[in-house]
Amino acid sequence: MTQPNRASTAKRPFRGAFVVLALIVVLLGAGFLVAHRYFGQPLAGSLQENAGADIGGPFTLVDQDGRTVTDADFRGKYMLIYFGYTYCPDICPTSLSRNADALKLLGAKADKVQPILISVDPERDTPATLKPYVAAFGPQLVGLTGTNEQIAAVAKEYRVYYGKSPSVKGDEYYLVDHSSFSYLIAPDGHFLRFINHTMKPEEMAAMLDQAIK
């Protein structure tokens, strides 16, 4: 009976492990390139590492009271911007609640911050829809919407990804896939940093306390 070649057999698991390792490296590299393309900066990092990135810019939108506002209307305050929508079932209310909790923990410095929700669902998020929604997260939160073109323009400025997700219940029940970061913008309009949605209120308040002068 012919005996199996032990040396050849021993190499097979090694080769399999090498292939798996190579695949992991490729996937990690692709993930980094996608992140760099959409955000232009590492998704994590200190305030100093993120500050000055080419993110943000002018916008003209409509608030929850139907008034036309621009980014210049918020000069002099730190803007805390979140891109979401009122029909969002989970991550939007969670992130907006976290932001509100962090501002409460911030104390007096919270007066220097203007929290803002910019809708990525302008077809459904009219000013009348936004008004009761933003009020649920405190009196400070401003809700902004606009035309499809206006929202696309501001999303491009902030490198925000968003798009309709197919619905199984009909066209009116669609969800919107979107980026889940909050953006901290300086009083002069310059981008300071991303805030990941996984950051805890206490951590966020400590970061804001350090950032706000």
Rank of each mutant, 00 (worst) to 15 (best):
T2W: 06
Q3L: 12
P4D: 02
R6T: 12
A7N: 12
A7Q: 13
T9M: 12
T9R: 12
K11V: 01
F14S: 08
A17P: 03
V19E: 06
A22L: 14
V25E: 07
V26G: 12
L27Q: 06
L27T: 06
L28I: 12
A30R: 05
A30N: 08
G31D: 14
G31S: 13
V34T: 13
V34G: 07
H36S: 15
H36G: 12
R37M: 12
Y38C: 00
G40Y: 11
L43T: 13
S46L: 11
Q48T: 10
N50S: 15
A51D: 11
A53S: 08
G56M: 02
T60D: 09
T60K: 13
L61G: 02
V62I: 14
D63R: 03
Q64H: 14
D65H: 15
T70A: 10
D71L: 03
D71I: 00
D73E: 11
R75A: 11
K77Q: 10
Y78L: 06
Y78T: 03
M79F: 00
M79N: 02
I81E: 10
I81N: 05
I81R: 04
G84V: 05
Y85K: 02
P89V: 07
D90N: 07
I91K: 01
I91Y: 09
C92N: 06
S95T: 15
R98W: 00
N99F: 12
D101H: 11
D101P: 00
D101R: 15
L103V: 02
K104L: 08
L106Q: 03
D111Q: 12
D111H: 09
V113I: 09
Q114C: 01
L117V: 11
S119R: 09
V120G: 02
V120P: 06
D121M: 09
D121S: 07
P122T: 01
R124P: 07
A128S: 14
A128R: 08
A128W: 05
T129I: 15
T129D: 11
L130D: 03
K131D: 09
Y133L: 04
F137N: 00
G138P: 03
P139A: 15
P139L: 05
L141D: 02
L141H: 05
G143A: 08
G143V: 06
T145K: 05
T147F: 10
Q150Y: 03
I151Y: 07
A152I: 04
V154Q: 07
Y158F: 15
Y158I: 06
R159Q: 15
R159T: 07
R159H: 15
R159A: 08
V160S: 04
K164I: 09
K164A: 13
S165C: 01
P166V: 07
P166M: 03
P166A: 11
S167E: 11
V168G: 12
G170M: 09
D171E: 14
Y174L: 11
L175Y: 01
V176E: 04
S179I: 07
S180Q: 13
S182N: 05
S182M: 15
Y183H: 14
L184T: 01
I185E: 01
A186V: 02
A186T: 04
P187F: 12
H190G: 10
H190Q: 13
H190D: 10
F191N: 00
R193M: 14
T198E: 10
M199D: 12
K200R: 13
K200I: 04
P201Y: 11
E203L: 00
A205Q: 06
A206G: 05
A206Y: 04
L208C: 01
A211F: 05
I212L: 09
K213T: 09
K213A: 13
